[in-house]
Amino acid sequence: MEVKAKARFVRVSPRKARLVIDQIRGKKVNDANNILKFSPKGAAEDIKKVLDSAVANARENFQLTNIDEMVVTEAYVDQGPTMKRFMPRAMGRAYEIKKRTSHITIVLG
């Protein structure tokens, strides 16, 4: 039984989120939860919310009780749309700032 949870349009760079998501792939839910809880990375908070959502989906939608035995089978981050903003610079120029977003997906098995 596979249980999936997604968070779309999360305001974190996909490159930074992938550093955290690589640490929890293949781990048990409790281990992944502890890794995210004590991670200094900012993206860990958003990824922990998605993991908690996947656990809640397993418990509520599929009536699974053996959550401790579940493993993070798939975890990946896709790039979302990029917001483009402009910052004024010297001598009348403008500098483009790219605010990247991510789509975070976690599958438990």
Rank of each mutant, 00 (worst) to 15 (best):
D78P: 10
A58C: 04
K37G: 07
V29M: 11
Y76F: 13
Y76W: 08
I67R: 03
G92D: 11
A44N: 03
D52Y: 05
T73Y: 02
L64Q: 05
K16W: 14
A90F: 15
H103A: 06
K27E: 13
S13Q: 10
D22T: 13
L51P: 03
T101Y: 12
V71E: 08
M83H: 13
D52E: 09
E74G: 01
T65P: 00
N34G: 15
Y76S: 05
I24H: 07
N34P: 09
P81S: 13
T82E: 08
I21E: 05
T73L: 06
V71M: 08
V12A: 06
M83Y: 15
K16S: 06
E45Q: 13
K16D: 09
S53W: 05
K4R: 13
V10H: 03
K98H: 14
T73W: 00
R59K: 15
N30T: 01
T65Y: 00
I106T: 01
A94Y: 11
K48Q: 14
E2W: 04
M70G: 09
A32T: 09
I35N: 09
I21Q: 06
T105Q: 08
E74H: 10
K4I: 14
P40C: 14
R59H: 15
V12M: 15
S102E: 07
V29K: 09
G26C: 00
Q79V: 02
D22I: 13
R15E: 12
D22C: 10
V55H: 05
F38L: 10
R85H: 12
D31S: 05
G42E: 14
A94G: 00
N57I: 02
N61D: 10
Y95F: 10
A90T: 15
R93P: 14
A58R: 02
K99S: 11
I21S: 09
L19C: 04
H103M: 02
R18Y: 07
A94P: 00
D22Q: 15
E74W: 02
R11D: 10
G109A: 05
M1V: 00
V77R: 00
M1F: 00
T65K: 03
V55A: 02
N66F: 00
N61I: 04
P14A: 06
E45V: 13
V72Y: 10
K84N: 05
E2D: 09
V20Y: 10
V55E: 01
Q79P: 02
V71D: 06
A44P: 07
S13K: 10
K28G: 08
K98P: 05
T65R: 01
M87V: 14
Q23L: 14
A44Y: 00
K41V: 10
K48L: 15
F62I: 05
A7Y: 09
V20P: 07
A5V: 05
P81V: 11
R100F: 10
R15Q: 13
Q63I: 01
K37D: 12
V29I: 12
A58V: 02
K6F: 11
V3P: 11
S39H: 05
K4E: 07
R85E: 07
N61R: 12
K4C: 11
A17K: 02
N61Q: 06
Y76C: 02
E96T: 15
